[in-house]
Structures are given as structure tokens and as C-alpha cells.
């Protein structure tokens, strides 16, 4: 579904992505892990066309993304920091995005209802807490039932209840054959929803593997234990394509 080949991006002298080659399939939830500055956000932004890489290509369903922007309407993107024009209300933000995607007429309102945003839809974005803004971002990503979801730190600011709700929604959509790309620092949050792990360090893919296989080979059950074990033993498993 998404094929990334030899992707390289430098900011000045800093190599944010260094010859990254990855292939993502439908019906999987892929966790992008790695320390700060390892290139997770750059990778996501490259897929969204927000960062323009020097080398390499990204192909989504057979189309090179640089040739056409319309592929983005099939991606639901939830940014890490949700900042919106201060005086817009929740309703205005949602209406605006709906107007931008006129071709879509069926909306997935499950999260809007689940988070109870309808009750506070006339509040301005300025008056909302970070967590509530995060909820708005999540709703926008799911609104058009896209094929690909890209979620940047989705659960970072959410309360446990909302976080559970979002994870439940992710599980449900994945079962429909959607692809999820998720970055997160809170590993325990991803434990039960991830199917594959991509571990980035200094812009390179250290490993890309199925969670079950990683668990088997390390003998650990918790995601953060798995990662810790791999890092300690420097046990690098070749990426499986």
C-alpha cells in the first residue's frame, strides 16, 4: 500500500532520514518508535508531502506522491500539536474541513459523539484544553473514513478513558483493512493495538518486524520490555519486506 524506497532527507548537516526503505500493507498497525530526533516526524511529514526529501520515492497504491496531491484525501492525519485559529469554534473547524472535502458525503461521527464534542461545539479553540484540542484533531482524522491513518502521538494528551476510546476505534478500523501509522513515546499505550514495529535511530531503520515475532524472539510480553531487550542485546533483526 505504501512503498518507501531509499528515502533520504537532510536538514543542513543533520541527516533526518538516511536511506529508509519500508513497505506497509493494509490491515496493519505500524508503530514508529525511536528516540527524539530519530526521524519519526520527518518520515510522517514526507509521506504527507509536508517535507520534501532529496532522494528516494514514496509510492502509495502505485502512484508516486510527488506527481499529484490528491492522494492526501485518502489519508487521515492527526498532528502532534493541534493548533487552530483561536477564535474558531469546534463546529467551524469541523465544518471547514468538511467543506474542503466536498467529494465526501458520508461522515464517520463516532469519535465526535464518543468524545462528546457536540455538546461543546460552540466553544472557541482558544478556550479548549490541550487534551480537548487533541480530541478535535482525532475526530478530523477519522471523519472521512480514509484508507490510511497517520497519527502523531495520538494518546499523549488524552485522559485514560478517551485514550481507550481512540484505541478501540483504531482496532475497529484496522479490522476493516485500514492501515495505521502511529508514533508514540508511551510504549505501553500501543501494547494491544500494534501489529508491526519500525524502530528508527539517527534516521536509519534499526528493525521492522511483527510484534508477535519480536515477542517470541525476545521472550518478553510487554512492548517496552521487548524494545529494551533488543536494544540491550543489540539484537538487530533484518527488516522483513
Amino acid at each position: 500500500m505504501i512503498s518507501i524506497t531509499h528515502l533520504t532527507k537532510t536538514f543542513g548537516k543533520f541527516k533526518a532520514l538516511d536511506d529508509v526503505t519500508l513497505h506497509f500493507e493494509r490491515g496493519t498497525t505500524i508503530s514508529l518508535l525511536g528516540p527524539n530526533g530519530s526521524g519519526k516526524t520527518t518520515l510522517i511529514k514526507s509521506i504527507l508531502g509536508l517535507v520534501i526529501p532529496e532522494k528516494g520515492s514514496i509510492i502509495i497504491d502505485g502512484d508516486e506522491i510527488r506527481s499529484n496531491v490528491s492522494y492526501r484525501s485518502r489519508i487521515g492525519y492527526m498532528p502532534q500539536i493541534g493548533r487552530y485559529p483561536e477564535n474558531m469554534t469546534i463546529k467551524q473547524v469541523i465544518d471547514m474541513i468538511k467543506e474542503m472535502r466536498k467529494e465526501c458525503t458520508v461522515y464517520d461521527n463516532e469519535l465526535i459523539n464518543g468524545f462528546g464534542l457536540t455538546a461543546i461545539q460552540h466553544k472557541t479553540m482558544r478556550s479548549l484544553s490541550g487534551g480537548t484540542r487533541q480530541k478535535v484533531s482525532a475526530c478530523l482524522a477519522f471523519l472521512f473514513s480514509p484508507d490510511i491513518y497517520i497519527l502523531d502521538e495520538p494518546t499523549a494528551g488524552l485522559d485514560p478513558l478517551s485514550s481507550e476510546l481512540l484505541k478501540e476505534k483504531i482496532r475497529k478500523e484496522r479490522a476493516k483493512g485500514k492501515l495505521f501509522l502511529i508514533t508514540s513515546h508511551v510504549l505501553s499505550d500501543l501494547d494491544d493495538i500494534t501489529s508491526h514495529i519500525v524502530y528508527l535511530q539517527d534516521g536509519k531503520v534499526m528493525f521492522y518486524n511483527e510484534v508477535d515475532e519480536l515477542k517470541r524472539s525476545t521472550g518478553e510480553n510487554k512492548l517496552n520490555k521487548v524494545i529494551a531487550t533488543i536494544m540491550q542485546e543489540d539484537l538487530l533483526i533484518d527488516a522483513t519486506y
Binding site: G49, R72, S137
Partner: peptide, 16 residues
């Protein structure tokens, strides 16, 4: 500058 994140979000909606 304050609209930066908002601009990113809209660009991700296939706005040119």
C-alpha cells in the same frame, strides 16, 4: 507563524 500547524493540517487535506 501562529497558523503554522493549521496550514500543515490543511495541506494534509490535499489543499495545494
Amino acid at each position: 507563524f501562529n497558523s503554522m500547524e493549521f496550514i500543515e493540517l490543511l495541506l494534509a487535506q490535499s489543499v495545494r
